[in-house]
Design a protein around this nucleic acid. Structure first.
Lengths: 193, 193
DNA sequence: ACCTGAACACCGTTCAAGT
DNA sequence: ACCTGAACACCGTTCAAGT
């Protein structure tokens, strides 16, 4: 990449991060180019699709989640690893409002720039779930895709201003549904019933 | 309302129902007016906001849900009434893709045309929940707003093409989290774990 | 009263023309 | 190689002009 192109690319990412944080995943790309002081075509050259831009914005978070999954697999109990990682996933997807809808769409769209990352996420979820299931700590009638869906639903919930105050609490409710009685006894916030 | 106005109003609703079913809650209002063979201003005269149009489209379903809540309160066991009504809510909100986001936004926006209906829904949810809680059938650390949020999250899930096949299954998972052990023993699909 | 559609200010996306 | 911005086809929303 030529030096001037690299400079545009980097600056576009900085500006896009701010604009998408403000306006969400359906932010105006025109506005991004405008604020970056760059022609609209330049943005499209570097990021041919909205997904490509978001992928670049999210890549660091995705990589961190993948590393954290591997780490948790050896450092924590199966049930704690699973729940803790799910919480991190929700936090990551929540970074940009509305991006989770594109992520769940990407998992079945091999053309999407987000496809590979999302498939990797789901694979990590599947591994952590399998470990918890093998230990009798997670119900066995769900799979990685179900977890991915629940992460999406909980992220969506946190994206809605009127529901956001409940997001943490409801994360706990859903997490308790994933775990077995045995795990609930050994784990986190005292289960009631 | 003048006879010609009434005719336009009714026809707009029929056309809007089809267009919103196709395109979702962010359907093109221009397209609705165009397909109805009516000026754009006519649509705005009858439905000053998108919410007003959706409210008209959803009113029948809302009324039915309210009636069903009252009926279930006397005809079914507390846990069956609650779960069955929640299922109906999700089905109703799922009728038009994306409408659930406007519904959850409306619950805190007294200016929204959807506000009253959503507050009524939440009140019905609160009553059914309280009845189940009093019978020891539902966990007591959630309230009607939490239920409303979970309905929203499950509806969103069903709105996503890649997750829709899991929506029914995950409804069961979340429903099991709302019920107590006692209710799970007495209720529906055999709980595992 | 009610209807119409032009007008305005925005989009996303493409692509010929420039450097 | 890379950048620019006009061009095109869409939006939502308003409002003067018509009937």
């Amino acid at each position: 990449m030529r030096a001037d192109a690299k400079k545009n690319y980097d600056h576009l990412l900085v500006v896009a991060s701010a604009v998408v944080a403000e306006q969400g995943a359906d932010a105006s790309l025109r506005d991004v180019a405008r604020r970056a002081g760059v022609g609209l075509g330049t943005l499209y050259r570097h990021f041919p699709t909205r997904e490509a831009l978001l992928e670049a914005l999210l890549r660091a978070g995705f990589d961190e989640l993948a590393a954290r999954a591997a780490e948790l697999e050896t450092s924590s109990s199966p049930e704690e690893a699973l729940v803790s990682w799910l919480r991190d996933c929700v936090a990551c997807a929540h970074e940009y409002r509305g991006v989770v809808a594109l992520m769940v769409a990407a998992i079945e769209d091999t053309e999407s720039a987000l496809h590979a990352s999302c498939v990797t996420m789901r694979a990590a979820a599947t591994r952590l779930l399998a470990r918890a299931q093998a230990a009798g700590m997670a119900r066995t009638d769900i799979d990685g895709t179900d977890l991915f869906a629940l992460i999406g639903a909980l992220t969506w919930l946190g994206d809605q201003p009127s529901l956001a105050p409940r997001a943490d609490h409801l994360f706990g409710v859903v997490a308790s549904a994933i775990l077995t009685d045995q795990a609930r006894r050994s784990c986190a916030p005292r289960p009631q019933s």
